[in-house]
């Protein structure tokens, strides 16, 4: 038998099939192509919308100040220069800041994920009195804006004391304002940045796992904690990864908690927030105390460069861990 398209029974050409269906096939095909085209235009536009600020920042960061006022230059600088990067790096103490930010984000993220996993597991897999009440408290930590309690937290750590014990011994309270300890303590107590959300997500994930595994382990004589470590943790890898990534990234960009508790440390987020002021001070010093502020364009150019320098590590991370970010949230099966 020779293989020709038309000769094969049941495999008609498109037009023949179209004819048989009375024009319906063509209509459907046109609809499909039209929808795909509309979808492409819409998505392309929206993706461009989201990416545009980053692209703009990249192009601005290589410009000289003169390019900003040059009406011909829009997005491609007339003279390529990396001096913005050098200056921003110098003003933000980039190397120091990067190291500190990385260390703090990493340790905080690990601590937060560990604690939230333990708590989330407790909420998902055990029945105990007042469980609903405590879970409502978790939701409350999500609800209460940190700004509401900021004032008193600030004073709480300024005059830190454990039930009046320390004052009894040393005669004075401890000032924990400029140490990193309070924030680690808060993270250990699941009250750090967005920790309620992590507890919620992890609990949701554990609730959806089948209980048979655990029961089998119990029957075989495995203790509660051992079951948790050996049996349940490996199952929960995807959600733990994504919570870790979120915690890491949000800690990296956070300015609220950093400003309040980690003020003594050089962090990228806080130095970026004060970059414009630093620049002004730097320029005044450079000019020998002379007046004259910084032009808005120049400071914004530097700010864009600084922002880029801050998010580059995150972008690289996202490039590799994109799947973990996106997919594991959908694996939790969030319901209310």
């Amino acid at each position: 038998m020779t293989k020709t398209k038309t000769a094969k029974p049941g495999q008609l050409t498109f037009w023949e099939r179209n004819k048989r269906s009375g024009g319906y096939l063509l209509q459907k095909k046109i609809m499909e192509v039209g929808v795909a085209l509309a979808r492409f235009i819409l998505l392309f536009g929206m993706c461009f919308l989201i990416l545009q600020p980053i692209l703009n920042k990249i192009s601005v960061s290589f410009m000289k100040e003169a390019d900003l006022y040059n009406p011909v230059v829009i997005s491609i600088p007339s003279e390529f220069t990396t001096e913005n990067y050098q200056l921003a790096g110098q003003l933000m103490y980039y190397k120091d800041g990067l190291k500190n930010t990385f260390l703090i984000s990493l340790t905080i993220a690990i601590l937060q994920v560990c604690m939230c996993t333990i708590v989330g597991y407790g909420f998902a897999r055990f029945e105990f009195p007042f469980k609903k009440f405590w879970f409502a408290c978790v939701m409350a930590t999500i609800l209460v804006p940190p700004q509401t309690i900021a004032t008193s937290l600030y004073l709480h750590f300024r005059f830190f004391d454990i039930l009046g014990l320390i004052k009894l011994i040393t005669g004075d309270t401890i000032n924990l304002r400029n140490s990193v300890l309070p924030y680690y303590l808060m993270s250990a107590g699941c009250t750090g940045l967005k920790n309620g959300l992590y507890v919620f997500l992890i609990r949701q994930f554990f609730r959806n796992l089948p209980g048979d595994l655990e029961e089998a382990a119990y029957v075989d004589g495995c203790g509660t904690f051992k079951t948790f470590i050996r049996i349940m943790l490996p199952e929960a890898k995807p959600i733990l990864t994504s919570c870790f990534l979120f915690s890491f990234v949000w800690q990296w960009t956070d300015s609220f908690y950093s400003k309040m508790f980690l003020g003594g440390k050089r962090l990228l987020s806080t130095s970026l927030a004060s970059l414009v002021d630093t620049l002004a001070a730097f320029l005044i010093r450079l000019r020998g105390g002379g007046g004259g502020g910084v032009s808005v364009g120049y400071s914004n150019m530097l700010l864009s460069t600084g922002t880029l320098m801050m998010i580059t590590p995150l972008l690289i991370l996202y490039l590799f861990a994109q799947r973990a970010f996106v997919e594991s949230i959908s694996s939790t099966g969030i319901k209310m």
């Binding site: 333990i118 407790g122 055990f126 009195p129 937290l153 709480h156």
Partner: peptide, 25 residues
């Protein structure tokens, strides 16, 4: 026993909540 271990698991949250949420709140 399970209720006890449940409380043990959520103990970090209870301590943190009482110390760093309730009091400042």
């Amino acid at each position: 026993r399970k209720a006890k271990s449940g409380y043990l698991f959520i103990l970090p949250f209870i301590i943190g909540f009482l110390a760093f949420m309730v009091k400042p709140f």
